[in-house]
Amino acid sequence: MGTDIVAQIAVLVNDIETTSQAYADFFGIEKPQWKLTDTLDKTQATYNGEPAEARAKLAFIKFGNITIELIEPDHNPSTWREVLDEKGEGFHHIAFRVDGLKSIVGEMEDRQMPLIQKGEYTGGRYAYMDTFKDLKLIIELLGNDIKP
């Protein structure tokens, strides 16, 4: 992937308000504000190769070099909804910032690690890769237009 630095650990939640407050109380920090992901016309998102209407509330909590991302998905099909429905609240993925996202996605697919979901966001794009068979987790690749 060209990097060994974890950028983010993501956690699926049913109620982002309650969970954000729990993190704030536990760590003695300000409660993070959540934002709603953009609509399909902006994200161009796909899930299992099909256009994805799914949206989610996201809250970010920065801890040094790592960010914890809280995700409360809507009820449209997505990797977030699928995992939340099947496994409940908790861990979803580890994210890495990468250069050459499209090429890395291709290399991973060649290694039988298929693309699950992808989309655009302001400042970049993301790809969730199904690395569960080999690595026992989902990896998210972040291709940011602006370096942090």
Rank of each mutant, 00 (worst) to 15 (best):
I29K: 11
G100H: 06
A56R: 08
P77I: 04
G100V: 06
K57F: 08
H75L: 15
F27V: 06
T37G: 08
A95H: 00
F60C: 05
K62F: 03
I68F: 02
I94S: 04
G90R: 05
V83K: 07
K62R: 14
F63V: 09
K57C: 10
E107T: 15
R55W: 09
K87I: 12
T67N: 01
A45Y: 00
E89K: 10
I29F: 08
L36V: 14
H75P: 10
E30N: 13
F27G: 06
T67F: 04
L70W: 01
F26E: 04
E107M: 12
S103E: 15
N48V: 12
N48K: 15
T39W: 13
Q44N: 15
Q21A: 13
R97V: 00
F26M: 13
E86D: 14
I29E: 10
A95L: 03
P77D: 11
G64F: 01
Q33L: 13
D110S: 15
R55P: 08
I66V: 15
E72Y: 06
A56K: 07
T46N: 06
G90W: 02
D74M: 12
D38F: 06
Q33W: 05
E50F: 11
E72G: 05
D38Q: 15
R55F: 08
K31D: 02
V83Q: 06
F27I: 05
K42L: 11
V98G: 04
G49P: 00
F27M: 06
G64S: 13
I104G: 02
E30F: 08
P73A: 09
V98M: 03
I66K: 00
E89T: 12
